[in-house]
Amino acid sequence: MKQLLQWTIIIPILSWALLFSGLIENSTIFQIVASILLILSVMSAVHHSEIIAERVGEPYGTIILAISITVIEVSIIVSLMLSEGSEAASLARDTVYAATMLILNGIIGLCLLIGSIKHYEQNFSPSSVTIGLVSLISIIVFTLVFPTFTESVHGSYYSTPQLIFASIACLIIYGSFLFAQTKGYRQYFLTNTTNEDESKTHPIEINNKTFYTSLFFLLVSLGIVVLLAKTLSPTIETIIISHNLPKSLVGVIIAIIILLPEAIAAIIAAKKNRLQTSLNLALGSALASIGLTIPTVALVCILLGIPIVLGLDIKSIVLLALSVFTVMLSLSKGKSNIVYGVVLLVNLFAYMFLMIYP
């Protein structure tokens, strides 16, 4: 009975009830409630996926976590692209670009800033960061930069063969990163625990009842996230357009919803002097966001004949390059610094400011 009263179970049930009630469409109050339930349902889905991951162990646990987040992201993107058609051709690009900028500048910046304020200086493995950034840079260039300069198709598009190649390249790179993180070079990604933390590092025993309950409610949570996002998207777009804001903000909002659980977990880890865990979460999320989302969305678009815009404009490429370069320099020595966090957050504000005031 106690398990059935957990918020991670109650929230998805309430969300489904609100959706079927039909109250969302014509009520601003219920739309606000639905937005809150949407965010909580995302966190519920991640919670249940973490329980499943704890049960099955590595490397399958990491794969399940990444796939769970990717399912949310892909489902929202595809559902909006199907409902809006060619008007949402750039949604995948906007969401992935926003997620990358939020992770590199926002999550990592906040972790470095908060961790440095509380602990002055924190250590982490530069080898793990190098593996993550090398993988991330290649995937970013394949998916967000090259389409702007290719000549087979006019505009920021890939031709079908190019899109297939880029998707396969992303999967290979992400797969190799996953192997390095969970098997080949796992020691690089481990956090040096103190005596205070040792009690938290022991594996938690997950019984069959908890496992199957989490498996069921993971599917329930993922389903309601997709449907609520699709239901609320017209309202979000109306608000954005009515305030003369760029439509690309829709991608930013989707990225924020998706990344919220990882962001909270990463910041908490940094406060507990486990910056390595924060960086693992941040870089792993960035790689999964691009390396799994783009190939999946590309496959759907190829099969259904939906156009997909991937290439960024020159201004966005410069901002992205600035972010990657700053992160590379900030994390090259294996020690954190409060200045690094401040600079990365300024980069994030510049990204948001230039989006609103291009």
Rank of each mutant, 00 (worst) to 15 (best):
H48D: 10
S49Q: 00
E50H: 11
I51G: 04
I51T: 14
A53K: 08
E54L: 13
E54H: 12
V56S: 07
G57A: 06
G57P: 01
P59E: 09
P59A: 03
Y60F: 13
Y60G: 07
I63R: 04
I63C: 06
I63E: 09
S68H: 05
S68Q: 03
S68L: 03
S68K: 04
I69E: 14
I69S: 15
V71P: 01
V71E: 02
I72A: 10
E73V: 12
S75R: 03
I76M: 14
I76P: 01
I76W: 09
I77D: 02
V78H: 11
S79Q: 01
L80Q: 15
L80T: 13
S83W: 05
G85T: 08
S86F: 09
E87A: 13
E87I: 07
A88F: 10
A89S: 15
L91F: 05
L91S: 06
L91E: 03
A92D: 13
R93I: 02
R93Y: 04
R93P: 01
R93S: 02
V96Q: 07
Y97L: 11
Y97H: 09
A99L: 08
T100K: 00
T100I: 09
M101S: 04
I103G: 01
L104V: 00
L104Q: 00
L104W: 00
G106Q: 10
I107R: 06
L110W: 05
L110D: 00
L112H: 07
L112T: 00
I114E: 10
S116A: 06
S116G: 11
I117D: 04
H119E: 14
E121N: 03
Q122K: 05
F124I: 02
F124G: 04
S125Y: 12
S125Q: 15
P126R: 05
S127Y: 15
S127M: 15
V129E: 09
T130N: 15
I131A: 13
S135E: 02
S135I: 05
S138Q: 07
I139M: 11
T143M: 06
T143A: 08
L144I: 07
V145H: 06
V145C: 06
